[in-house]
Each structure stands twice: as C-alpha cells, then as structure tokens.
Nucleic acid binder design. Structure first.
Lengths: 227, 227
DNA sequence: TTTTAAAATTTGTAGGATGATTGGTTAACC
DNA sequence: GGTTAACCAATCATCCTACAAATTTTAAAA
C-alpha cells in the first residue's frame, strides 16, 4: 500500500481523498476498523496533526467514526450517501417519502428501459424472496433488496448513491409504521406487477405502479400522524 | 457571539456544527470570509488544532475554502448541497438530467398541490422574466430562478437542498449545449403551460410537461455526444 | 514616483506532552 | 466459583510550541 504524494493540493486533502478511495474501493469495507493513527501516519508519511485533520474531515462527513481507546471504524461507503442520510434524519417522513417517490419512479422507468438479463434475474430472485418471507423482518429485508436491484438496473450512479441511504432510513420508518398499525398491509401483488412491467420493458406502467405504491405509504404515514 | 460548550460530543464536532450553523443561518453568507484562526480560537475557546480539525472537516465537505496567507471563505450553504454538487461533477450529463427529471417532476407535482398565492405570484414573475429575456444569458438565469421557485413551492426541504446544487451544475451544461448547437431552441411555451398547470392545481399535467421538457434536453444531449 | 525589500498576516505542517476513554487482565473478596 | 475492583495497554482527544509557505501591506531605497 504505497501512497503517492502529489503536489497540487494540501497534504490533508490528499490523505482524506486516499482514505475515501480505500473505503469506496472496498479495501476498508463498511463496519471494518481502519489502522490506528500511528500506523496511518507512517503509511501516509505525514504528521499526526495532518492525519487527524484528514480523518476528522471524514468523521464529520459521516464516512468514519472514531472510538476513543479503541479505534476508527468505517460507517458509510460514499460521502454523498452519508450526508444524504444525515439530511434525512432531520426530515419529516412525508418529505422522505416524496423524495423516495421521485427517485424510485425514475429508477423504475430507467430500469424498464435498460435492464440486462442478469439484472432482471436478480430482480426476480428478490421478488421471490419477498413472497417466501416468513415474517415481517424477512419481508422488509427482501423488499429493500428488491428496490436496490431495481435502482441498480437504472444504470444511474447518482440514483444509486442517493437511494442507498434513503432505503436504510426508510427501513426503520416503514417498519415502525407497519408495527404500529398491527396489520402489515403487505401488497405483494404490486411488487409482482412492478417486476413484470420492468421485465416487459414498459416504463410508463412501472412508473405508475411505483406512484401507487408510495401513495399508499403516504396514506399510512398520514394516518400515523393523526393518531 | 457567545459559544455554548456542551459535553456530549467532541469539541471538534461542536465547533464544526456551530460554524455550520453560522453559515446556514446567513451570519457568514456564501462568498464571505470568516474570521481568521486566531480569532476563532478565542471565540470558541479551543486550541488551534481543534479549530483546524473543525475547519478542515468543513473544507473537505465543500462548505469552506482556505487560502494560505489570505483566509477562509464560505463556498456553499449546506453540506448536502455541497456533496451533491461534488458528485455531479463526476457524473455524466445524462445521469444528471435523469436525476433532474426525477426531482423536477416531483417538485412540479407537489407545487401544484401546495403552492401559496404568494409563491404562485413569484413563479409568474419569473415566467415573465423568461419571456422578457434579451439574450441567452438572461434567459438562462430567469429559467433557473423559475425552477427554483417551483421547487420552493413544493414545501419539501430535501428537494430544495438537492435542487439548489443541481441547478448550478446544469446551468453551465445546458448553456454549453445551446451554445454549441447555435440554435438556442428555446421553448417558452412549455414554461407557460407548466406555470398554468401549477396555478390551476393540476399535478398530473404539470408533471407531464416537465417530463416532456427534460426529454427534449436529453435528446439534445444525445446529439451532442454523437458529434 | 516607482521599485524593491522587509514586515505582517494568515494558513499549512510537524513534533511533543498530557488527558480521557475503552477493553482486557489480574487480584482480592465473598 | 462468581463477582467486583484495580490496574494496564492501546488508542483517540486536546493542548502547546515551532517553523514553513503564501499573500498582502508597509517601509526603504533608487
């Protein structure tokens, strides 16, 4: 792991970007503990202050998390994803659902236009796991995986970045919604129609199904706020 | 400007968040130069290292920009906005237009549902300025202002955050497109229809007009890539 | 008056020191 | 044998001092 020193930008910026690269590339995956400060100082060939400024930048961005006495952990894969999630934490559920609608509708449309055979297979596998889910927890996970697969099939990296964090944030919210309402109100038929429309390359139909699905969630959210 | 010291989080994090607050609240507006390090150290009551880590976090986030020998300047108003713009800089024009479509379509729909009389007046004023634009530059600025007004009328803060940066990034791209094609291909009729649909509280119609508008831009972008 | 050099201001980087936190280990006590 | 307290090592958090580098301002020289 030889670190190249460029001259254009500050040392701190260079180190921060390189750490980001290690994270995005998967060298330091989410959840892993990166080397301690003393080691990083040696690897990057900078003083501790410079190293700390770089690490702190990424801590603030939500990419890393430091634990005194223990070490530094990777919390997120991309800066945009982390800051988006931070933003979602201070937003209302309605705002979040509306943005989800915007992103999912566009993703479904593009997936219908662009998916590969392999991607469609993966989408169909996720659909199958939704149907086979034994409990609410399994269903929620399969549901998220399905939506991720669809966004991936859109071949739009920005959508993927934004959606990765949106899905995590919504995971708990929707989970709470269905818990409190008691009746899970699962509509697997909508998922089946969505996947069918995407497979048949019908973007308008896919988009309409997404709109209908989110509208139902917004209604549930509205009822929740009235209680 | 008395700074309160809480105990829960690290000093660096507290200072960084306070600086962010000063920026978001407009105390330090975009483009302005914030006080030098020595002053900030005294104001926040921390050491220079602690202050630098906080400032560096915001520099990396794109909110601040430091110039050696001169000072530190405010570059953006929100972290999400800054990181989104950073992401857009490494994205293709097609990806950007697709995300723009997702956000603008949702914003137009919500604006049709939720606008206030005051907001509609402002939207109509922006439309008027589009029509009265003497040259391409003026039109582009009025165009951006119109879309900003529509997104604001959606009453969704996330959309506003994301769109603020998206508009800036697209400003140059669309400008380049129209420059290179020679023929500006301005369609003021679409803007008029859009504003009419929003005013008449017809969300479906507003959304369809946005889709049509972006589709035209995507076509132009496609032709550009073929040259 | 103009040009050059020095000084001042401000950020960038390095090194040293102490404090605080966390997890693991060991010893003492019940 | 189980529990609790003390101790230690590892690691991050904060502070201080010093010098370097870049830019602007001021003073001196031509």
């Amino acid at each position: 792991m030889e670190v190249i020193k460029a001259k254009r930008s500050s040392l701190v910026e260079q180190v921060a970007l390189q750490i980001e690269t290690f994270i995005e590339s998967g060298t330091w995956p989410v959840g892993s503990r990166i080397p301690p400060e003393m080691e990083l100082m040696e690897q990057f060939g900078v003083s501790r202050n410079t190293l700390r400024e770089a690490v702190r930048a990424l801590v603030h961005a939500g990419l890393l998390q430091t634990k005194q006495g223990i070490g530094t952990y990777v919390r997120a894969k991309t800066v945009l994803g982390a800051s988006f999630q931070k933003r979602l934490e201070t937003s209302t559920l309605l705002e979040t659902l509306e943005v989800r609608h915007a992103l999912e509708r566009e993703a479904a449309w593009l997936a219908a236009e662009r998916h590969t055979g392999e991607e469609l297979n993966h989408i169909q596998k996720c659909l199958h796991e939704c149907k086979e889910a034994a409990d609410l927890h399994s269903f929620a996970e399969a549901d998220i995986a399905l939506h991720h697969a669809i966004v991936k099939a859109s071949h739009n990296r920005i959508l993927m970045d934004l959606y990765a964090r949106l899905a995590d944030e919504l995971h708990a919210s929707v989970h709470d919604l269905t818990d409190m309402n008691g009746d899970p109100d699962i509509d697997p038929g909508a998922h089946e129609e969505l996947v069918k429309a995407i497979g048949a390359r019908q973007p308008e139909k896919a988009a309409a199904i997404v709109s209908k699905d989110i509208a139902r969630l917004k209604e549930m959210a509205g009822q929740e706020e009235k209680e």
